[in-house]
Amino acid sequence: MRVLVVHNRYRSEQPSGENHVVDQEIDLLRSAGHDVRLFERRSDDIASMSLPAKGAVPLRVPWNPASRRDLAAELRRERPDVVHIHNTFPLLSPSVVAACQDARVPAVATLHNYGMVCPPGTLFRDGEICGECVGRQPLPALAHGCYRSSRLATAPMALSVAMNRRRWWTGISRFFCISDAQRRLLVRAGMPESRMTVKHNFIPDPGLRRSLPGEHFLFLGRMSEEKGVRVLMRAWERASTGVPLVLAGAGPLQDEVAQWAQARPDVHYLGLRGKQECQRLMANAVAVVAPSAWLEAFGLVVVEAMAADVPAVAPAHGAFVELIEHKVSGLLYHPGDAHALAEALRRAAEPARNREMGEAARVRYEKDFTPSVGLDRLLAGYDEAIRGA
């Protein structure tokens, strides 16, 4: 199969799970013998643009005719069987969908967030889950300045959602949702249910699995409000698990987290760490804590923990409800409730319960999240798109 992958890479200064997923899918397809080409733009390139070019970037977020023209030329040259679209913000724009329609090449799209119904793609505002724009025009996002707390920065994204919604919904043959929770929400918002399918992200086997009871609880991710760091800090002060907490990652709350950790002998803040060290920290964890305040569309860190025989503790909302079987492969608690999280941490530290949950987590990983499962679902979606075309 000839596949053309379309992706706008996020800035390298912000480690992106989405970039990682795209790269893994390309490698997986190529290893299975498929011919995969990449049509991409890089947000890193904005820094080297001239001042007028930088100023034009927001104007082209809703529609970039150059991207449509360039992709059309690529489609004529490569003649792929299917186009797989990932991120189009900010340098590609939804004009790439029109290029596929013009060339009559079937296109699929992976929805990595909630960008189809929420301009910043997060469903999160002022520290709370927000659904004001779901199922309607994105005027509330513009009024609140939901992207970077700026109405001016939000305007191009809100305009893109408003003017391109129908183009996405009619021009894409198959949408890949990364969880059923995400799919259900988008269907309620009016997206075409018959073309929405769940294709979870897959995780290559890390080769490191927990063999001992574990040395610490682990938070691995962005130090930000939406990731629930403050809820975790409040819960930890009540938990008394007898096991230390390790936090790894960077973000806007990193100074606050570092100061909090410095005052507590049972907390260690490591900052940003490389892939191999993160895998080692995972394999030595009692449990991974993913206290996200927003509705995670997937929850990559939870599945990474499963692959390492490590259970997870997470709030009972978003994708976590389908990733974690409560009291079997991990523990769920009432979202935003520090007391409930503290109790879940105490339960997760119980040795017998913890060992059983870790074993069940690995079984779930092998059933649903391995590369072979991911490849089957990916190719099935391509086949459906091609047959439909």
Rank of each mutant, 00 (worst) to 15 (best):
R2F: 06
L4K: 01
L4T: 03
V5T: 05
S12K: 14
S16I: 12
N19C: 02
L29A: 02
H34M: 08
L38E: 11
E40Y: 05
E40L: 01
R41W: 10
S43C: 06
D45P: 04
S50M: 03
P52R: 06
G55V: 10
W63L: 05
A73Y: 00
L75V: 09
L75D: 04
D81M: 07
V83R: 08
H84P: 03
V96R: 12
V97G: 09
A103N: 03
V108E: 08
M116Y: 10
G121T: 11
T122P: 00
L123P: 03
R125Y: 13
D126E: 15
G127F: 09
I129Y: 00
G131H: 08
E132R: 13
V134M: 06
Q137G: 04
A143R: 15
G145E: 11
S150Q: 12
A155T: 14
L159M: 13
V161W: 00
A162W: 15
M163L: 14
N164G: 08
R165D: 07
W169I: 00
I172V: 15
S173D: 14
S173T: 09
A181F: 13
R184I: 11
L186H: 05
L186E: 14
L186R: 01
A189S: 14
M191G: 09
M191Q: 13
S194L: 14
M196S: 09
V198T: 15
P204M: 07
P206H: 02
R209W: 00
E215D: 11
H216L: 02
G221E: 07
R222L: 14
S224Q: 07
E225N: 09
V229T: 12
R230D: 09
V231M: 04
R234D: 14
W236M: 12
E237A: 15
S240F: 02
G242D: 00
A248R: 06
L253H: 05
Q259Y: 00
Q262T: 11
Q262F: 11
P265T: 13
P265N: 14
V267Q: 07
V267S: 07
R273N: 06
A285F: 03
V286Y: 00
V289H: 08
V289N: 06
A290G: 01
P291K: 08
S292F: 07
W294A: 01
L295Q: 15
A297W: 00
F298I: 05
G299D: 06
V301W: 06
E304H: 06
A305F: 02
D309N: 12
P315K: 01
A316K: 10
G318R: 09
F320P: 02
E322S: 05
E325G: 09
S329R: 10
G330W: 11
G330E: 09
Y333R: 09
H339M: 08
H339F: 01
E343A: 11
L345H: 07
A348E: 01
A349L: 03
E359S: 11
D368T: 04
E384Y: 00
